[in-house]
Design a protein around this nucleic acid. Structure first.
Lengths: 233, 233
DNA sequence: CAGTGGTCTAGACCACCAG
DNA sequence: TGGTGGTCTAGACCACTGC
């Protein structure tokens, strides 16, 4: 018998998840349509729709108009990562935040950076290298290119007092971005900046952000090997 | 004047995002309440609620009952990562998938694994080491511990034909999990399994999954340094 | 073409929490 | 304690897509 305590979309969500876990509906199976489930559990279709929509967003079911709703075959679990401002990340750990700009130069970009920023001409971009500190010790190294065509005013900013990330957040909101996570070995330069040994492993985050028309910035963050980025499933 | 083409929650969502980007509402600002925004844009509160809820989920605004809705100060951007089954990940790249089990042993777990699986006794767990292949070449090394108390039947399975991941997906759905991403150096063992040099950088994913009561499994996936996990913001 | 999910409306009650 | 967001209901129209 159906649990009569189903009153909210969370209840319905939980009940459907329970059935899927209990194999009442196996992976690949078509499950009843919204209207039927709603009727069975005693809620309106709107409520059931909300429950199923959330399950679809979590990758548990797949939905198609006319095709119905089916249990995901390969549960491509979706993990949501928070991408915090580094200052907050450090301060959230109870440590004092610091920031040192090591290099600042407007220069024509190398070919790979031109490609990442989708630049055609040879106009100069702003190249920054900085280290973020936690309790005075290197936390992460940042190498960044800023496209003046996408970030108006950046060339006039001295980034010694404010990190490029925070300046960009405040002045140049982005509309989309891509991000990649990987590992690399510390080059001599990066090793020196992070005060680690050459060839130690680095956790690397590469991010490109775009405005409505042009690329705004490309940044590579290199964390020493002990760093972990965590979330839940 | 308000754009009269606002008809759907996506329109409202886009319009609000536009205003935030245009600094009509600055970070930290309180924005009008649902009812007012709905009236202004000519939609119902339900529709506006959906738009604002999605913005909150994306980390663009923060909402509180009675406190209203305000533009997020530090846009803690949320990135959604797909955690695919490795077979699918390889096949999605157009390569042939392969899998080799290198080690299988039921053994009392070392202390760190006991801690990760929240085990109290010294009951044996199943320890597996395997390599996943793409076009016959090592793609990722997998070291896994399976808690028989959380994954009934695992001790009876020979994991040479089916990878533990796929068996678990099919037989032991999990209710929650935690996942961490980081970097490490290849130990001699791992380097040999992946056919890379000792001390080359590895991209490491560590994942623990839990059933309703007990931990099911802990797995460490080690990808060679060139690997990138990508998503969009 | 017809069935299913996607969305909107108009109204209502309620939970939470800032003042 | 009152204002704000969270959610439910009942009904409707429509877009997509499998058959």
């Amino acid at each position: 018998m159906t649990d009569l305590s189903v009153r909210t979309w969370r209840d319905a969500h939980a009940e459907i998840l329970r059935r899927i876990r209990a194999r009442a509906w196996a992976p690949g199976d078509l499950i009843p349509k919204e209207v039927d489930l709603a009727a069975e559990m005693g809620v309106t279709r709107s409520t059931m729709n909300r429950a199923l929509r959330e399950l679809a967003a979590a990758g548990v079911v797949e939905r198609r108009r006319k095709g119905g709703t089916r249990v995901a075959e390969a549960p491509v679990r979706k993990a949501t990562l928070d991408i915090p401002v580094i200052r907050r990340e450090v301060e959230a750990g109870g440590r004092a935040y610091g920031y040192t700009l090591l290099h600042r130069e407007a220069t024509p970009p190398p070919a790979d950076i031109r490609a990442r920023l989708a630049l055609t001409g040879a106009a100069a971009v702003l190249h920054l290298i900085a280290v973020h500190l936690a309790d005075g010790r290197p936390f992460v190294e940042e190498e960044r290119w800023i496209n003046p065509a996408g970030a108006a005013g950046a060339l006039d900013v001295d980034f010694t007092a404010i990190s490029a990330n925070e300046w960009l957040i405040a002045h140049t909101p982005f509309s989309r971005g891509d991000i990649a996570f990987g590992a690399a070995s510390a080059s001599p330069d990066v090793a020196a900046r992070l005060a680690i040994e050459v060839c130690e492993p680095l956790f690397v985050i590469e991010r490109t952000t775009w405005g409505d028309e042009a690329a705004i910035t490309f940044v590579r963050l290199s964390y020493p090997g002990g760093y972990r980025m965590r979330t839940t499933l």
